[in-house]
Design a protein around this nucleic acid. Structure first.
Lengths: 102, 102
DNA sequence: CATATATATCAATATATATTGATATATTAA
DNA sequence: TTAATATATCAATATATATTGATATATATG
């Protein structure tokens, strides 16, 4: 199934891919992703790791969560973030198919 | 070789990845990439395809070229753009390794 | 219950980037 | 040589987004 850049469905797929790419194309957010590659972490651990303010980290996490790059699990007062592997894999695969010859 | 987010070299690698992702995370630029997937095209063809002003297209092409997403070949008055497959493949591979468990 | 901890949100500002309009440069054609 | 075509660049503006500071909410602890 070749991408044609023409149909409505593909337009939408492309639009979603742009949103995904925008979400991950930020230095701090890529560091978060890198940190979470080893497994889930709560927000305070991510704050410590990055050395950024809590509200700023919370903002970046929100951006990643909105695009389903990350998912969350609440445990008491803590919220654990982890990579939403399935969604991410699909996005990378589609992006890759757009840019590289199949 | 696991990514640690710690060494200077990896910091730089990550920084390059962010630049690559920023370059491709734009709707018009992703459409250009999609269009060029079939093969090289001159600027005027890309302008026709996108239906955008020539100067704006030229700007987007410059962004993609700067990050080695695209390469160029000049032929007379025309400049042909095409996807720089090798560079792109490397970037996607590294990005993928950051975000997905190996 | 009062306090501390963890996280999210909101408004304001700073910064980066997309877009537009005008113009410059190079190449081809008449 | 003049005009037309192809592409790039520059300045100005609009828009999106990162960052900061303050505050709200929810949970845990003494």
């Amino acid at each position: 199934m070749k991408y044609t850049c023409k149909t409505k469905q593909n337009e939408e797929h492309l639009s979603n891919t742009v949103k995904f790419l925008k979400a991950v194309s930020d230095e701090n957010r890529l560091k978060i992703i890198c940190f979470l590659n080893a497994g889930e972490r709560c927000v305070c651990e991510i704050v410590d790791f990055l050395g950024l303010s809590q509200n700023l980290v919370s903002h970046h996490l929100k951006v990643l969560r909105k695009q389903n790059v990350l998912k969350t699990r609440k445990d008491g007062a803590k919220v654990f973030y982890s990579i939403y592997d399935g969604q991410v894999k699909d996005n990378i695969k589609f992006f890759s198919s757009l840019i590289l010859k199949s």
